[in-house]
């Protein structure tokens, strides 16, 4: 295989790893609470600012800043649920979408007020790995590994803990589980906190790759939603796999054609998927 094509393929897989975490978090929340957090990418953006601030302004070690980012965004997820989503749980879905969309603009505006519109950078870089003629970004590889670990931990939590089992049960049948003694409000809170923590982890991975600014969510937010729908909204494994498919399409499509063409292919694939399998590529 052409070494440059192989490099594009590897880049696609690494890119998929970056998309996978926010897709997991978004799907977890939707699967359990049945509400789309339209502002999910903006939660990630707030997390990126948290890391940037703690590391470059407060002088904390980077790993401590990363560790602090997760609870910060997790609490943000909790607040989002308590203040915005819970009062609207019985409202029509469009109201819920508009409300979380409003939070999107609120967070963008708040970060603009606090941090201005400047592009902020951690200034952290890892040396690339050179394997034969292939270059692999050390930063992207580390982010990819962290994404896999995060996904594995989430899987273990959902599979092997009582709360995780309750979350999966609620995701499967929201009506019946309360009759069996599961408190849905508590599960919603936990799912929102875990969804927020996943956004925090995604923030840690993205902040070393992208500059932080109030509108950075535009770079990965739309494609994350597309991935979730393609994998099946609420289907965590589906979203996880769809992230890699999308990463590879974007990367290899860009190699064979142009960068713009790759997104045409990706969106074309998405449309065909939705027509062929309206509930998502991996819907059971």
């Amino acid at each position: 295989m052409d070494s440059f094509l192989l490099e594009a393929l590897v880049n696609g897989i690494l890119l998929g790893g970056v998309f996978a975490l926010p897709a997991l978090g978004l799907n977890l929340v939707f699967g359990v609470v049945d509400v789309v957090w339209l502002c999910y990418a903006e939660l990630v953006m707030v997390g990126m600012y948290a890391v940037w601030f703690l590391y470059t302004q407060a002088g904390w070690p980077l790993w401590v800043a990363f560790a602090a980012c997760l609870p910060v965004v997790s609490v943000l997820g909790l607040l989002l649920h308590l203040l915005v989503v819970r009062p609207l749980l019985a409202a029509p879905p469009i109201n819920q979408v508009l409300a979380t969309g409003g939070v999107l603009f609120l967070l963008q505006g708040a970060m603009t007020l606090i941090f201005r519109t400047d592009f902020r950078s951690l200034g952290v870089d890892m040396p690339p790995m050179e394997v034969g003629e292939i270059f692999v970004s050390g930063t992207k590889l580390a982010a990819f590994c962290a994404a896999l670990v995060g996904a594995a931990l989430l899987w273990a939590f959902l599979k092997f803990t009582y709360v995780g089992t309750a979350i999966r049960a609620i995701a499967r049948d929201r009506e019946v589980m309360p009759l069996m003694g599961v408190d849905p409000q508590r599960i919603y809170l936990i799912a929102s906190a875990v969804g927020g923590a996943l956004a925090g982890l995604a923030a840690c991975l993205l902040v070393v790759q992208l500059d932080v600014h109030p509108f950075v969510g535009l770079s990965f937010g739309p494609i994350t939603f597309m991935i979730c729908v393609m994998g099946g909204l609420g289907n965590m494994l589906g979203g996880f796999l769809a992230a890699f498919i999308m990463g590879i399409i974007v990367s290899v499509g860009g190699f064979w054609g142009t960068t713009e063409f790759s997104y045409v292919v990706a969106f074309g694939f998405f449309i065909v998927t939705i027509f062929a399998r309206p509930r998502g590529l991996f819907a059971r």
Partner: peptide, 12 residues
Amino acid sequence: EAYSSTAPDLST
């Protein structure tokens, strides 16, 4: 080659 200024990745 052109690209979108909001593209999340330019490694290709």
